[in-house]
C-alpha cells in the first residue's frame, strides 16, 4: 500500500462523518462554556483556599483573646498552617501549564513537571498538612483543660482521626490517579524520544 493510498483512505473518512458548525451561535456558545468552566475553577479555589483564608483571622482572634497558653500556641500553629496552605496551593496552581499551543514534547514535559509537583505535595502531606493541623487542633483543645472543660480528649481524638482520614484520602488520590498518569506520561515521552 502506498503512502498516497493511505492518505486517501484517511481523508475519505470525512465523507462518512462531517462536522457542521453553526457559525452564528458558535462564539456565544464558546463564551458561555468558558464562563461556566471559569466558575467551576473559582468554586474549587474557594473551597481549597477560601476555607483557609476564612480561618486565618479566626485563629488570630483566638490567639489574642483566649487566655489559655496551650490554646494560644495551638492557634498560632493553626494560623501558620493556614498561611502555609494558601501559599503552597497557590504556588502549585501557578505552575500548572497554561500554554496548550506548545510543541508536543515540551507540553508533555511541562505536564510531567506539574504532575511531579502535585505528587510531591501529596507524598509530603503528613509533614506540611496533617502534623501542624493535628498538633495545632490538639493543643487548642487541651488548653481548655485549665477551666476543666469536658470531652476534650474526644475532640483531640477527633482531630487525630480527621488527620488520618485526610492522609489516606491523599494517598488514595496519589496512587489511584497521579501515579498511573505519571507512568503513562513517562511512557509517551520516552517513546517520543526513541
Amino acid at each position: 500500500m502506498l503512502d498516497e493510498e493511505l492518505k486517501r483512505i484517511w481523508n475519505a473518512s470525512t465523507q462518512q462523518e462531517r462536522v457542521k458548525l453553526d457559525l452564528a451561535l458558535l462564539l456565544q456558545d464558546v463564551d458561555n462554556q468558558l464562563r461556566a468552566l471559569d466558575r467551576g475553577i473559582k468554586f474549587r479555589n474557594v473551597l481549597e483556599i477560601g476555607v483557609a483564608v476564612f480561618l486565618l483571622p479566626m485563629f488570630l482572634i483566638s490567639a489574642v483573646f483566649i487566655p489559655f497558653l496551650l490554646s494560644k500556641i495551638g492557634s498560632i500553629i493553626l494560623m501558620g498552617f493556614c498561611a502555609f496552605l494558601i501559599y503552597k496551593l497557590k504556588k502549585v496552581r501557578a505552575q500548572k501549564p497554561k500554554d496548550v499551543a506548545l510543541p508536543l514534547k515540551e507540553y508533555l514535559q511541562e505536564q510531567r513537571l506539574y504532575l511531579q509537583q502535585e505528587m510531591r505535595l501529596l507524598t509530603t502531606v503528613a509533614y506540611w498538612y496533617i502534623a501542624p493541623f493535628v498538633v495545632g487542633m490538639s493543643l487548642f483543645f487541651i488548653g481548655f483543660a485549665e477551666i476543666g472543660a469536658e470531652g476534650l480528649w474526644l475532640k483531640v481524638v477527633g482531630a487525630i482521626v480527621l488527620g488520618i482520614v485526610i492522609y489516606f484520602l491523599n494517598q488514595w488520590e496519589l496512587n489511584r490517579r497521579l501515579k498511573p498518569m505519571l507512568e503513562k506520561l513517562n511512557q509517551t515521552i520516552s517513546s517520543l524520544q526513541v
Binding site: R18, V19, K20, D22, D29, A36, L37
Partner: peptide
C-alpha cells in the same frame, strides 16, 4: 468530568 460537562450546541456531526 470536564469533557462531559462540555456541550457546544453549535457543533453537530452529520453522518452520511
Amino acid at each position: 468530568k470536564q469533557a462531559r460537562t462540555l456541550r457546544l450546541e453549535s457543533i453537530h456531526m452529520e453522518k452520511t
